[in-house]
């Protein structure tokens, strides 16, 4: 019998490249996590296992040093505020923009895309200048600090919410709404009784992405900050990563950030899968899109 050949053979070097890439992308992060358990002060030479930088050391460990605990609390605080404001704002904007035709809608659509296509630094500079130089209401109400940080984060988060919710709206098509209208629901009732429940998984997914965006954000958050009270974990990483005196507690706080994000995202994925299981595809699709949507694609 002659040897059967697979017309769609899988070159071994592609497989190797892929696994090598995955190792390259993840091993350094794992190493940084491992170093948070280092027994010595070094973040580059392994000196044995300990939990002193997590909780053992009464002054310098993550859970005891106020520098870290403050940053942790402030990061979570900003993330919560960002989620609370950006999600409803973006959700309504997505629904509105998807149906609003006529004067102004084109500019609104363009405006929504600006934060996605501008380097964050340009946004950060512009917000800094407007809050420090423009002396008219409402900008005079905003001082640098938590308020400005929330405003900055919401401003770029909103666009992500709009993109996610709109892609879900597009995949739903107009038919459910038409069916609701046909069965006697007014425009508002069909929005409330049909569109909103169907968009719930997308709203949920976008909330989580806003959370991840906020937790990980550095540039805008730094530009909008005002001193020690408003330092977040990414800001701590930026300020101390190269510091000679920095201990593995920095690795520990970074690890906490990674864990919080992954638990959130993993949990959200499971919830969306459950949504999807209940209604056929709706949530499953949203779960699949979560990764895609993060990049602001389609």
């Amino acid at each position: 019998m002659s040897r059967l050949i697979d017309p769609w053979g899988r070159p071994r070097w592609l497989r190797l490249t892929t696994w090598a890439y995955i190792a390259w992308s993840l091993v350094p992060v794992l190493a940084a996590i491992v170093f948070s358990f280092n027994d010595g002060r070094s973040r580059s030479v392994w000196q044995g296992f300990s939990t002193r930088w997590w909780w053992g050391d009464p002054n310098l460990s993550v859970f005891h040093d106020p520098i870290y605990t403050n940053a942790l609390v402030h990061s979570l605080e900003l993330a919560a505020l960002d989620m609370l404001i950006a999600t409803p704002l973006g959700f309504l904007l997505a629904i509105g923009l998807s149906r609003w035709r006529g004067r102004g809608s084109g500019s609104a659509n363009f405006l929504m895309l600006v934060p996605l296509t501008t380097p964050e630094l340009a946004m950060a500079v512009s917000l800094l200048l407007v809050f420090t130089q423009l002396t008219i209401i409402p900008f005079t109400w905003v001082a640098l600090g938590t308020t400005a940080q929330v405003i900055g984060q919401v401003t770029f988060s909103v666009s992500y919410v709009v993109v996610i919710v709109r892609s879900r709206l597009a995949s739903l098509g107009p038919e459910y709404e038409e069916a609701a209208r046909d069965l006697g629901a007014s425009a508002r009732q069909s929005l409330q009784h049909v569109l909103l429940p169907l968009l719930l998984p997308a709203a949920f997914a976008s909330t989580l992405i806003v959370f991840a965006l906020s937790i990980d954000d550095f540039v805008v958050t730094q530009y909008m900050s005002a001193g020690g009270e408003t330092v977040t974990i990414p800001m701590l990483l930026y300020a101390n990563a190269r510091g000679a005196a920095t201990t593995p507690a920095l690795n520990a706080v970074a690890t906490i950030m990674v864990i919080v994000t992954l638990v959130g995202v993993g949990g959200a994925y499971l919830v969306l899968r459950w949504f999807g299981h209940r209604s056929g595809e709706a949530g499953g699709e949203a779960a699949g899109q979560m990764g895609m949507d993060l990049t602001g694609m389609e």
Partner: peptide
Amino acid sequence: GGIWRTLSIPGVVWLVLFVVVPAYAVVAV
């Protein structure tokens, strides 16, 4: 059309205040 425009208003106002005006501030500075 009205209901859809109404839904968009908060988001659009936000973007005008914190994207358009700041962009102008950069130019002004």
